[in-house]
Deep mutational scan, measured.
Amino acid sequence: MIVFVRFNSSHGFPVEVDSDTSIFQLKEVVAKRQGVPADQLRVIFAGKELRNDWTVQNCDLDQQSIVHIVQRPWRKGQEMNATGGDDPRNAAGGCEREPQSLTRVDLSSSVLPGDSVGLAVILHTDSRKDSPPAGSPAGRSIYNSFYVYCKGPCQRVQPGKLRVQCSTCRQATLTLTQGPSCWDDVLIPNRMSGECQSPHCPGTSAEFFFKCGAHPTSDKETSVALHLIATNSRNITCITCTDVRSPVLVFQCNSRHVICLDCFHLYCVTRLNDRQFVHDPQLGYSLPCVAGCPNSLIKELHHFRILGEEQYNRYQQYGAEECVLQMGGVLCPRPGCGAGLLPEPDQRKVTCEGGNGLGCGFAFCRECKEAYHEGECSAVFEASGTTTQAYRVDERAAEQARWEAASKETIKKTTKPCPRCHVPVEKNGGCMHMKCPQPQCRLEWCWNCGCEWNRVCMGDHWFDV
């Protein structure tokens, strides 16, 4: 396979590697080409510095992935760790964990309700045991953590790749202090920090972006993250068709209702045909949960890209028209025109101005929308079919299609509260000796007794199943 190397943020060049090629071997190839010592090179990928003893497969490097290699003399205490030698983080029983690669970060837990604080980093599902597709590297999971809308060759929703760059020099040479644990960490600028490894760059702020994971991409090709779309790892039924499908869209209502993408497309087109989208002054033209839940309008309007190009163009047109109407304007009634106009409040005669090729020149009556006339309008008909009709959803289907309910059931079956801080902690095999993952707590306690870890627990039921 081919990976592209950008040395000291210059133009990239291809390097041929195998899945079992080590990072140090990659350094040696680059060092020979650039005429520099291999031990002064640092390989940066997806916000993480890659260790010498890791392989291309370990690092989730795919065909035509772009890695950054910078030349920086080692500072005291760094060289041993980078070589894969006596790194205290690798000691058996050590409590410190390697910062998780962005290629394996899962933010789907952050669609849980606000009262489930902490689960994004504490609760991990076991539903990723799908067998890898044919042709994928051994052991590589097909679980997708992110979804994007690819405006490039795909023109559809695709699995996405999370990447990070330095907000100062805009190069992907920043190593994160810690990985993101929720969508806010990724979507809110300057929320996460790190250290830029580019020479002479003092940058410390992280800037995240997404790429389409279905095809090789260049540095400049980015895609918009659709953070309401998630892999259906909890096997929730769709609120409309009641099938279990994946991926799904999880509405931001209190129940976190789930809808499959085909039904979401149908829901949007139906509402669009009836012009029953909601115009929100802050958000724009949007839709609420299909069950009509309060405070559930979709905030990231790129989710409506699921409509496809033709329907999305209609959505944008109707949204612009609705904006004009909300501002007190009118639409030209001549067939084939429909231009938005903003006449004076007491102006009865409205002319669709033909300047700049935008208007048709038609003069019409503001009251009856017919060709302009003197005197009273002959008839004014009330528009028919403008009443909002509820999208029919079966109550039982709505009850079963809740992301929140599956989460709470998982928590109930696989977790116990920490005796000190009461945060839910998952036990997935292993011994009875637990350690609270909350940095402010870190209590060592017994899963069996529910009390602080002691010699009695150690001698009596340390390794009970």
Rank of each mutant, 00 (worst) to 15 (best):
V3D: 03
F4R: 15
V17F: 02
D18E: 10
F24W: 13
V30M: 03
K32S: 11
Q34I: 15
Q34L: 08
Q34C: 12
A38V: 13
A38I: 08
Q40W: 05
L41T: 00
R42K: 08
R42L: 06
F45A: 13
G47T: 01
G47Y: 03
E49A: 02
E49C: 02
Q57R: 13
L61G: 02
I66R: 04
H68W: 02
I69Q: 00
V70L: 05
Q71V: 05
R75G: 13
A82Q: 13
G85L: 13
D87S: 13
A92Y: 11
S101T: 10
L102R: 10
V105P: 14
D106T: 08
L112R: 13
G114Q: 13
L119A: 15
L119F: 07
A120W: 04
D126P: 10
R128H: 11
R128M: 13
P132R: 12
P133Y: 10
G139W: 10
Y143V: 09
V148N: 01
V148S: 00
C150N: 02
Q155R: 15
V157Q: 04
G160E: 00
L162K: 01
V164K: 02
C166N: 01
C166G: 02
S167V: 07
R170W: 05
A172G: 12
T173Y: 06
T173W: 05
S181V: 08
C182I: 05
D184N: 09
L187K: 06
R191S: 09
M192Q: 04
S193D: 09
S193T: 13
Q197W: 07
H200M: 12
P202E: 13
G203I: 02
T204D: 08
F210C: 02
P216S: 08
T217F: 08
D219H: 09
K220Q: 11
H227K: 15
T237L: 06
T242R: 11
S246D: 09
V250K: 05
S255K: 13
R256E: 04
H257V: 01
D274S: 04
L287R: 02
P288I: 04
P288L: 04
A291C: 12
L307V: 07
E310H: 06
N313P: 07
Q316N: 12
C332P: 03
P343L: 09
K349P: 04
E353G: 09
G357P: 08
G359W: 06
C360S: 03
C368K: 03
H373V: 02
E376C: 09
C377Q: 02
A379F: 11
V380C: 08
F381D: 05
Y391P: 07
D394Y: 05
R396I: 11
A398N: 10
R402F: 04
R402N: 06
E409T: 09
K412L: 11
R420T: 09
V423Q: 13
V425N: 15
K427M: 08
C431G: 10
M432L: 05
C436W: 00
C446L: 00
W447M: 06
N448G: 10
G450V: 02
W453T: 01
N454S: 15
V456S: 15
V456D: 15
D460M: 08
D460C: 05
D460Y: 05
H461I: 01
F463T: 00
F463P: 00
D464Y: 15
D464V: 15
